[in-house]
Design a binder for these strands. Structure first.
Length: 432
RNA sequence: UCCGCGGUAGCUCAAUGGUGGAGCGUCCGGCUGUUAACCGGAAGGUUGUAGGUUCGAGCCCUACCCGCGGAGCCA
């Protein structure tokens, strides 16, 4: 018999179909038996009445447990009582693949630690299913966005010889006779090299930070997409980031309505995410914080609370640009109008979700870049190839990085980024 | 690394320093439309670990372990 999936049942009303999946729940009301089947595309309830089906079928039903795997056969019937609009009048259980042992995740509430230890099973729940579907849509939209605009995907290496930005703590590993290698914390420097070859590029892959960050916004392994465009300045960079974020949010809204409903996400605040986004300088952000009475010192980076307070002033993502150069990376270009400022931009998501994009116009002048490298005591030899980009046809260029997990967390309205990635890696969690 | 909160049945949580309970899950029974079904019954405990105070400690004290949240750092 042809394979049918639950999401397609509306096309088979009145027909007999066979489904394969797992028992999400079983219920019984005396002689009426119910199986709620999950097949990855949805849930559907199968019904049978003792006396109207063979006793052998009832006997099979009695052996089933939560998460047992099986195939069921039945006639599709439209039913207003069903959450999905359709039910199955069961005629057979052709095959039971496995009678599941006692399943640890029940339909009651569980603590986060208990669920995290069983992440491999937790992914089966409808909430996690919804989050992963939104994540998938976001990633697909990211790729489509750049692919449709003439960007070339250039993947950066994960094993790197030195720190990209020189600040973060990196994961270290032995690399044969060449000494130490480090897991990449950013593909950006390689992105710059690629932009000088292809004009418009993006790299998209996992990145690693060995910082002992313990917050709802941090993972040790996370995904980042980093576009880089030759001949773009900071304004162009912000234009791109703005259009990019609008596209992601609006595409998710158009395609993931059922998922956002499962997550009980209030989408009215997401509807607002349309360009233009407010653009304020770091100085203006500092003024907002002072006016709110926060103890903020000019020259320091925005903390988590600072970001929340600033973003609360706006109804959509806000772009904060021109940060003090001391708090930003060596490769960011200084503002010609004020050398104390870097041509950097952070995009802060609404509702307290904080920085989801960090970007800048890059330093394209060889001497200026050499000065920065010396000032920050970075190993010049490791950056020779990067300096070459300024020796051979240097041009203005800019780019940014978007953190996928923070974006998923924001769009889904989650408490913690650990739910946004199938198998999260955090300082105290390497399993499952 | 620092600060704060927590650890009791398989799970989620109660329990004034005085006999450790409930709901869910499991098992048994009942129910002809259940939606985290419901009703009745049963099993299920070295209260994170090690000390201490006390006639008596899940509760108070000390140390340690583990987790959660935050700071710093960042996406």
């Amino acid at each position: 018999m042809e394979k049918t999936y639950i999401q397609d049942l509306h096309r088979h009303a009145g027909e007999e179909v066979q489904l394969q999946g797992w028992v999400s729940n079983i219920r019984s009301s005396g002689k009426v038996k119910f199986i709620v089947l999950r097949d990855g595309t949805g849930l559907v309830q199968g019904v049978m009445v003792k006396g109207q089906v063979p006793d052998s079928l009832i006997e099979k039903f009695e052996t089933l447990t939560q998460e047992s795997s099986l195939s069921i056969k039945g006639k599709v019937r439209k039913d207003d009582r069903a959450p999905g609009g359709f039910e199955l009048d069961l005629t057979d259980i052709p095959h039971i693949y496995n009678i599941a042992h006692e399943y640890p995740i029940t339909h009651k509430e569980h603590g986060i630690e208990f669920l995290a230890d069983r992440r491999h099973l937790w992914l089966r729940s409808s909430r996690q299913h919804a989050i992963m579907r939104v994540r998938h849509r976001i990633i697909k939209t990211i790729r489509d966005f750049f692919d449709n605009r003439g960007f070339t995907l250039i993947d950066s290496p994960i094993l790197t010889p030195a720190a990209c930005e020189g600040t973060s703590t990196l994961f270290e590993t032995d690399y044969f006779d060449l000494g130490k290698a480090y897991l990449s914390q950013s593909g950006q420097l390689y992105g710059e090299a690629s932009a000088m070859a292809f004009g418009k590029i993006y790299c998209f892959g996992p990145t690693f930070r060995a910082e002992k960050s313990k917050t709802r916004r941090h993972l040790t392994e996370f995904w980042m997409v980093e576009p880089e465009v030759a001949f773009n300045d900071l304004e162009d960079d912000m234009d791109l980031a703005e259009e990019f974020l609008e596209c992601i949010v609006q595409t998710v809204l158009q395609n993931c309505g059922p998922e956002l409903k499962v997550l009980e996400r209030d989408t009215t605040k997401l509807q607002n995410v349309k360009k233009p986004f407010p653009r304020i300088t770091y100085d203006e952000a500092a003024k907002i914080l002072h006016d709110k009475g926060l103890p903020f010192e000019w020259g320091s980076d925005l903390g988590g609370t600072d970001e929340t307070v600033v973003s609360e002033q706006f109804d959509r993502p806000v772009m904060v640009h021109r940060y003090p150069s001391e708090v930003k990376a060596f490769y960011m270009k200084r503002d010609p109008q004020n050398p104390k400022l870097a041509l950097a931009v952070d995009v802060l998501a609404p509702e307290g979700y904080g920085e989801i994009i960090g970007g800048s116009q890059r330093e394209d002048d060889l001497d200026a870049l050499l000065t920065r490298i010396k000032e920050q005591h970075l190993p010049e030899s490791a950056f020779e190839w990067y300096l070459d980009l300024r020796r051979f046809g240097s041009v203005p260029h800019a780019g940014f990085g978007l953190g996928v997990e923070r974006t998923v967390s924001w769009i889904c309205g989650l408490e913690h980024v650990r739910e946004t990635i199938p198998f999260p890696r955090m300082i105290y969690r390497l399993t499952p």
